[in-house]
Design a protein around this nucleic acid. Structure first.
Lengths: 122, 122
DNA sequence: TCCATAATTCAATGATTCTTGAATTATAGG
DNA sequence: CCTATAATTCAAGAATCATTGAATTATGGA
């Protein structure tokens, strides 16, 4: 991920509705959510959700697929991961020790095999 | 870091000049850079750099201190780290396995075994 | 085919945000 | 005190972004 892509990703996440949508889709997992469901949960109009979904798609944060009459959106984990890496590279540039605590505190430790969706982080 | 702070951080980083300034200051380290030096390296006017530095400061991405006639700006590593953590929490929410590669590929890998853990940037 | 549903597109408006240059504040040196 | 330097503030205009509602496209079922 280059600076231009990162900037585009940051812009996508810098808007309240869009940030909520991304978090929503990340939690929804690979199955994703229909545009209408996103609009309902985010409490915005359908045209407005379309606008924001398009922005997010253009920034590579989410992907779309058609399923019958619905269009299903899902988080693009690769881009999120790349964005994290971009920040880490920046943060660590010449100063790796500063960034390390982020790893220690991160929730990415081996997942406990749970059946129910529950808070994986504290 | 809550959603509101994260949004503010993303907004700060979503502007080309500001993103370059942050990267510049991260590389500059704790000593930081004077506003004028930032303006010169970013190739923008002094009033414009002031505007962007203020935005970054307001978002908690950088800190300012006066030194004689200059004002020295330096990256706020804590906020950067918090932002990475915020993204990781989001990315991992319910799907830890997806995020893990970011750790493996990160530059923050095994800190060289220094004799003791000390805060290099106080 | 006709209708209902799901979603997007479009144009207009409103709201933020960026940039610019002139005026202002703060500091140091002669 | 006067001048030069470093930086910020301010107001105006330009540019970008967000929201709204009406019109449009696409799909599936009766």
């Amino acid at each position: 991920m280059d600076e231009r892509q990162a900037q585009s990703a940051f812009a996508a996440l810098s808007q309240g509705t869009r940030l909520r949508i991304v978090r929503m889709l990340v939690k929804a997992g690979p199955e994703g959510m229909a545009a209408g469901a996103v609009a309902a949960e985010a409490e915005v109009s359908s045209s407005n959700v379309s606008f924001h979904l398009k922005e997010l798609e253009h920034a590579g944060m989410i992907a779309a697929r058609r399923e019958a009459r619905s269009i299903i959106y899902s988080a693009d984990y690769d881009t999120l991961r790349d964005l994290i890496e971009f920040l880490m590279k920046d943060c660590c540039a010449g100063h790796p020790e500063i960034c390390t605590p982020a790893l220690a505190k991160s929730c990415c430790a081996p997942a406990p095999a749970t059946t129910k969706r529950k808070r994986a982080y504290a």
